[in-house]
C-alpha cells in the first residue's frame, strides 16, 4: 500500500430519493477518504446504500435520487481539488471527469455494454472523447489494452459484439474500457458477483495487477466478505445508509468493533471452520427504508442493545486508535447523565 495523500474525500454525503410514499434516505451522512493507490472496500447487504454512494460520486444516481447535502472532493493530477457534489450532473465539466479521472465498472457487463456497437468501437469512443487522437491511434491503444486485460486474439475480438463473448470476457472488456484513459480512481460495483468463483479470482487478480501498474485507487463495492479480505486495504461497513465502522482490513477482521460487523463476520460459513455447527445469525431482517428505527438503526437486531440509549439518538462517529472509526454507543458518545436519570 503506497499511502500518499487523499485522492477522494467524501464528507456528510446524503442522497435521498423522494417518492410518492415518502423520502428514502439511501445515503444518510457518509464520510470516507480514499488515499492514492489504495483499495477501499465498501461492504454491506443489499439496500444499505453502497451502490448509491458510488453512483453519487459520479452523479449518476437515477431519478428521483438527489444529492441533498455533503461534499465529494476529488484531487486532480495538477493538485487542485474539485467538489463533484456541487457540479451540474449534466454539465460538461463533470462529463470530462467521468471516464477520464474516475471510471466505473458494473456488476452485470451485459447490461452496461452497448449491444449494437462492437467492443472495439465502444472502447475507442471512450478514448477519443477524452484525448485528442485520431481513429488509428485510438485503435492501436484499444488493441493494446485488450491484450493487457487478457482478451485472446484482440484483432478479431475488436470487431466482436458483447453477446458473442462469455461473461468473464465481457467483464474484461468492461475493465479495458474503464482503464483506457488511465483513471486515478476505479469504482468497481460488485464486479465479480455475476461470475463464477474461478473467473472471480482471475478478475480480482487482474484488477490488482493493473492497479499496481497504473497506480490508481480502487473503490470496490461488494457484499462478499471473502472478496474484501482478499483485496482490501481499508474497509467501510455500511448499514441502512450509514457507515457503521471503518478500519484497515487486518484490524477489522481480527477485532471488529461494531456489533453489526461482528455479527456479519460470524454468520458466514468459512471453509474448514464451521462444519456441521450452526451458523450465528443476526435476528430479524434489514428494516424497510420507510420505517427506519429511531436512534441507531441497528438497535432492534443488536445483541448489545442498551434501552434508553441506542433507541433515543443516533450514535456519533467515535475515532479509535489506528485511524479506525465506529458509530456505536459502546465506544462512547452516549449521554451518561441522561442514562442515570432513567
Amino acid at each position: 500500500m503506497n499511502t500518499q495523500g487523499p485522492l477522494l474525500e467524501v464528507q456528510d454525503l446524503q442522497t435521498h430519493f423522494s417518492t410518492d410514499e415518502g423520502v428514502v434516505k439511501a445515503v444518510d451522512g457518509v464520510d470516507f477518504t480514499i488515499r492514492q493507490g489504495e483499495t477501499f472496500c465498501l461492504v454491506g447487504e443489499s439496500g444499505c446504500g453502497k451502490s448509491v454512494t458510488a453512483f453519487s460520486i459520479l452523479q449518476i444516481v437515477q431519478d428521483p435520487g438527489r444529492i441533498v447535502r455533503g461534499s465529494i472532493h476529488l484531487r486532480q493530477d495538477d493538485g487542485q481539488t474539485l467538489d463533484l457534489a456541487a457540479m451540474d450532473p449534466k454539465g460538461r465539466a463533470l462529463r470530462r471527469i467521468r471516464g477520464r479521472d474516475i471510471a466505473m465498472i458494473f456488476q452485470e457487463p451485459m447490461t452496461s455494454l452497448s449491444p449494437v456497437h462492437t467492443v472495439g468501437d465502444q472502447i475507442s469512443e471512450t478514448l477519443r472523447l477524452h484525448a485528442p487522437i485520431d481513429k488509428l491511434q485510438a485503435r492501436e491503444q484499444t488493441m493494446a489494452i485488450l491484450t493487457r486485460v487478457g482478451i485472446p486474439r484482440p484483432e478479431r475480438h475488436f470487431h466482436a459484439y458483447p453477446f458473442q463473448l462469455s461473461g468473464g470476457m465481457r467483464q474484461r472488456v468492461m475493465i479495458a474500457m474503464a482503464l483506457i484513459c488511465r483513471p486515478s480512481l476505479l469504482i468497481a460495483d460488485e464486479p465479480t458477483t455475476a461470475l463464477d468463483v474461478t473467473m472471480q479470482a482471475v478478475i480480482l487478480d487482474l484488477i490488482k495487477e493493473l492497479q499496481g501498474e497504473m497506480g490508481m485507487s480502487v473503490m470496490l463495492i461488494t457484499h462478499n466478505l471473502g472478496v474484501v479480505a482478499e483485496v482490501a486495504d481499508t474497509v467501510a461497513v455500511m448499514y441502512l445508509g450509514r457507515i457503521v465502522e471503518s478500519a484497515d482490513v487486518y484490524s477489522l477482521f481480527r477485532e471488529p468493533k461494531h456489533p453489526y460487523t461482528t455479527a456479519l463476520l460470524r454468520s458466514i460459513p468459512v471453509i474448514g471452520l464451521t462444519k456441521q455447527e450452526r451458523l450465528a445469525t443476526i435476528r430479524g431482517m434489514v428494516p424497510h427504508p420507510f420505517n427506519r428505527p429511531h436512534g441507531c438503526t441497528f438497535h432492534p437486531r443488536c445483541d448489545h442493545f442498551m434501552p434508553g440509549v441506542c433507541n433515543r439518538s443516533l450514535p456519533p462517529i467515535t475515532h479509535l486508535e489506528g485511524g479506525r472509526t465506529v458509530r456505536c454507543f459502546l465506544y462512547g458518545g452516549a449521554d451518561t447523565r441522561e442514562r442515570e436519570e432513567r
Binding site: V197, A201, L204, G226, V227, A229, E230, I268, V270, I271
Partner: peptide, 8 residues
C-alpha cells in the same frame, strides 16, 4: 479460487 474471509 474461493476467497477466504481472513486477510491473514
Amino acid at each position: 479460487a474461493v476467497p477466504i474471509a481472513d486477510p491473514r
